[in-house]
Amino acid sequence: MTNQEPFIAAAAESEGTRGGISRRSVLLTAGGAASIAVVPQVASQSVSEGGPASSMVRVRLAVNGTRHELDLDTRQSLLDVLREDLGLTGTKKGCNQGACGACTILLNGRRVVSCLTLAAMHDGARIETIEGLEKNGELHPLQSAFIEHDGLQCGFCTPGQIMSAVGCIAEGHAGSPDDIRFWMSGNICRCGAYPGIVAAVSDAAKRV
């Protein structure tokens, strides 16, 4: 697992470059990289009788245009790989059972919940996360619209909302507020920022 540390460091650096210090880089600096759980959570768990102790697979992923070749435990979800191996912590772990949408990413162009799929099943896949939306220092129209329309309060669900909205608009389901409410219903916001979210998606749909 030692080969994962450079990824963590690289991600902390890229987050830290915008506006100075990010929460993640503070964690890394204060605790030291060694104290962050780089080993996947799954590895600490018990072993069923007669089953393999663990199983590793090599997986190639293109994430936000960058290619990675990773040796992964078969139990790792795409979400865990993004967050723990690649340090892309923009994608959030909410319910971890496919019910909240906080972990939404684009997998080969389609919006999916990254918690409910195994990375080992996606060798060669193309993935886009919230970190990949900004181009040449310009926010994606959805990112700008979420700011303009106050589409968040605590912000935890926002990366998932935005990635889901990218899919929703591309699918052609952002034509009316009712359409948006229905086709964004896989993304839950506990703060109840829905009016702002619907306004932001509606506005951005006209611009992308």
Binding site: T117, S185, G186
Partner: peptide, 9 residues
């Protein structure tokens, strides 16, 4: 049945 994300999967 299910959310758009799950229906894609």
């Amino acid at each position: 049945g299910a959310s758009p994300q799950l229906r894609n999967m």
